[in-house]
Simulated scan of single mutants.
Amino acid sequence: MADQITGHLIDRFVSALRPVVPLVSVWAHGSLAGGDYQPGRSDLDLIALLGRPCTAAEHQQLGEMHEALGRAIPLASRLHCSYPAVTALDDPARSHLTWAHEELMHRPVTPVTRRELHDFGLVLHGRPPTEILPLVTDGELADFIVKDLQNFWRPALDHPGRWTHDIWVDLGLLTLARATVTLQDGRLITKAEALDVLAGLGAPTDVVDDIRQRRYGTPGPADQQWINRRAELTLAFLGPAIDQVVAASL
C-alpha cells in the first residue's frame, strides 16, 4: 500500500483519532489509493467518516491531535483529511470540517473524490465507501469537472503571479489532462498517466518534463529565468486548452 513511514503515520493517525471523534470509517483516495503515491511528494488524502458532526470540544481536540501528529511525524504536514458525518453525505456541494495545509477549514467531498472512493478507495478503518457513500452519476461528475475548469481554473489564468509557483503549474496542467480523459470516457487517471496525456494535448514539452522530474526524479534548483518562462508557456497553453475542453463538453 505505502512505504513504512507512511504506513506508520496512518496507523498512528487512526489510533489517535478514535478516542477523539465518533469514528465510523477512514478511507484513502487520491494518489495513495490510485497507486501513484510518492512518499514525501504526494499529499495523503483521507476521509474520516463520523457517526455525527463534531462538537465544539471535539473540533478543538481534533486540531490539537493533528498538531501533535505533525510535531511527532514530519510527513503529517502532507496529511489532508475531511470529516463528514454519515448524515451529511447526500449533497456533494456541502462543506465538511477538513484538516488541510496544517489548519482546520471547511471543504466539500467533491464528485471526483466520491468517484475515486467508489472505484478504488482504500479502506483504512471500518466499513467501505461502497456501503455508505451515495453514488455519483456520470452526469454529476462531468458537470462538476466542467464547472471546475470554467469557474476556478480559467479565472486563475488572470493572475499570472500564481503560475510562478510549482503547485499551480503542476495542478493546472494535470487537472486539465485528467478532466479531458474523464469527460471523454468516464475514466479517472493517475497523475503519471496524466503526464502522458499532456504530451498528446500539445502541452509544452519542457514544462511536462519539469513536472515529471519534480514528481518522479531528482530535480535540481530552478533559476528565476526558467520559472518565469515556465509560467509563460503554461499560461499560453492552458487558456485555449481549457476553452477547447469546455466547448467540446457543452
Results as ranks from 00 to 15, higher is better:
K191E: 01
P155A: 15
T180K: 02
H59D: 12
F237T: 10
P74T: 00
A248I: 01
R12E: 04
T182W: 03
V197S: 00
I242P: 15
A179E: 04
M105L: 15
R212M: 00
T110F: 01
A241E: 02
L69K: 05
I189A: 02
H96K: 14
L117H: 05
D206I: 09
V181I: 14
P128N: 12
W153T: 10
D166M: 06
F144A: 10
R94L: 10
C81T: 08
Q61P: 09
W27S: 08
G7R: 01
M65D: 09
G34I: 04
G200E: 11
T113W: 13
T98W: 11
V20R: 01
P19A: 13
S31G: 07
A56G: 12
T205G: 10
I47N: 06
W99R: 13
R187Q: 10
Q38H: 12
V21W: 03
A156K: 00
V146W: 00
D158R: 06
T182R: 06
L62S: 07
V146F: 00
P128E: 08
V14N: 05
D91S: 07
P128C: 13
M65P: 13
H106W: 11
D185R: 15
G70F: 03
Q4D: 12
R214F: 02
P155Q: 13
I227K: 02
R187H: 08
H118K: 06
V109N: 03
W27Y: 04
W226Q: 01
T130N: 04
D138A: 08
L183K: 02
H125R: 07
N228T: 06
D138F: 06
A68G: 10
T110E: 00
G121R: 15
D158T: 05
D91I: 15
V169H: 05
D138T: 06
D210K: 01
H125Q: 05
A142K: 10
P160C: 05
L171C: 06
H106Q: 07
A177I: 04
A100V: 13
Y216Q: 15
L104S: 11
A33P: 02
D143A: 11
L250W: 05
T6M: 10
H106I: 09
T113F: 12
R215V: 03
V14H: 01
S249H: 10
A194I: 02
L32V: 14
R127M: 09
L46A: 05
G126H: 03
W99T: 11
K191R: 05
R215C: 03
D43K: 11
T113D: 11
E58F: 13
S15P: 00
S42Q: 02
H165N: 11
A194Q: 07
N228H: 14
A57P: 13
L97P: 02
D3F: 09
H80G: 14
D223N: 15
T110I: 03
N151W: 09
Y37D: 03
L69C: 06
A247I: 08
P84F: 14
R215H: 14
D209C: 08
G239Q: 08
L141H: 02
G70K: 07
E116W: 15
I132D: 07
T6H: 12
A16F: 14
Q224G: 04
Q224Y: 08
D143Q: 13
V207F: 15
D91C: 10
R178Y: 04
L32D: 12
G239C: 07
A57M: 11
R12S: 01
R71M: 07
A33W: 01
L135H: 14
H59G: 10
I47C: 09
R52H: 06
D143S: 13
